[in-house]
Design a protein around this nucleic acid. Structure first.
Lengths: 168, 168
DNA sequence: TGCTTTTTTCATTTTTTTTTGAAAACATTG
DNA sequence: CAATGTTTTCAAAAAAAAATGAAAAAAGCA
């Protein structure tokens, strides 16, 4: 029988790294405005040598299957995880796409650029308003709109470039 | 007495632009994870030719003085607004810093870089854990940590550069 | 300094977001 | 094609974030 004290210590040390790692990703995802469960799942997978089933994830993180399913869906849409089929197990197994920066890149493409697009539309509508409203056809309004146009234009140039850089 | 119908139309047209403009900034701030009130305030100021007092803002947006004060504080810390003293009025008056991109730039400096710093600390702690835990001294763990180190390093280089670009 | 106006703070309320858990849908296999 | 195992969906509960409003603090003025 092995020394129970040593074994406890080892276990807690192992846990410590896991906790630290998961916390790291929870914060990272926080920056992107993603829920903590998404960060937890990615963090767990990032430091798992072996692909994990949904049940594994749900059990180890003590979150519901519902949350786990949702979180995996989000990560899948960001292409942050991969699915692998494990011999003799009919459940799907997941592992992290280790290039975390790609997740940022996909986040830009998927969550930011669409906003920029609709921002452009909105600016067009504002210009329309101004054209119709004599009250607003002043240097001031025209300049401000112009600035917004330049900003979104720059954004639509810069962000895809940034996303590209991150993907390398 | 002026035509009431015309006047109503004009008013609503004016409102329409304002609403559109405010909505624009609400969404923009949303991308940065800032509350809607902050976007509303900035939007209102961005299209105001004349600096507005806190009461003006609170009244026109129909939000409480408390929210207005909080929102202005946030915008001040992002250097997104300027304060001007108006003759014969002892209240502060606010106007928008029209270079909206600076707001992004300051957001990176103020809200993102600190996270990156603490991320670096956390990675150091993880390395420590690994050094102490034989279990984890495998190619796998070492590689994953290495990747995170490279990512934060790249981030700490890239983000300030991006912030710099935006400020121009 | 005392009085008035303006701004900030913060406990409470409201709103929004996230998580849960149970039911439905889907898939696999004997 | 039933029977069992797995995943998704979604209404309801829980948690988190934001807004309110009243009281405290700060600032300007007489």
């Amino acid at each position: 029988m092995q020394d129970p004290e040593l074994s406890t210590t080892k276990l807690s040390e192992q846990k410590e790294l896991e906790v630290e790692a998961i916390d790291f990703f929870v914060r990272m995802m926080g920056i992107l405005g993603l829920p903590r469960s998404v960060g937890e799942i990615y963090g767990l997978l990032y430091f798992s040598e072996v692909p994990q089933s949904m049940e594994d994830i749900s059990t180890r993180l003590k979150i519901s299957m519902g949350s786990t399913s949702q979180g995996l869906r989000t990560l899948r849409s960001l292409k942050a995880i991969r699915t692998s089929y494990i011999q003799g197990d009919r459940r799907d197994h997941y592992s992290a796409e280790s290039e975390f920066r790609r997740l940022f890149s996909n986040f830009i493409k998927e969550d930011i650029l669409p906003h920029l697009e609709s921002a452009s539309d909105r600016i067009l509508r504002m210009e329309d308003q101004i054209a119709r409203n004599v009250e607003h056809q002043t240097e001031f309004y025209i300049t401000r709109i112009e600035k917004l146009k330049r900003l979104t234009k720059a954004g639509k140039r810069l962000l895809p470039a940034l996303a590209g850089l991150l993907k390398l």
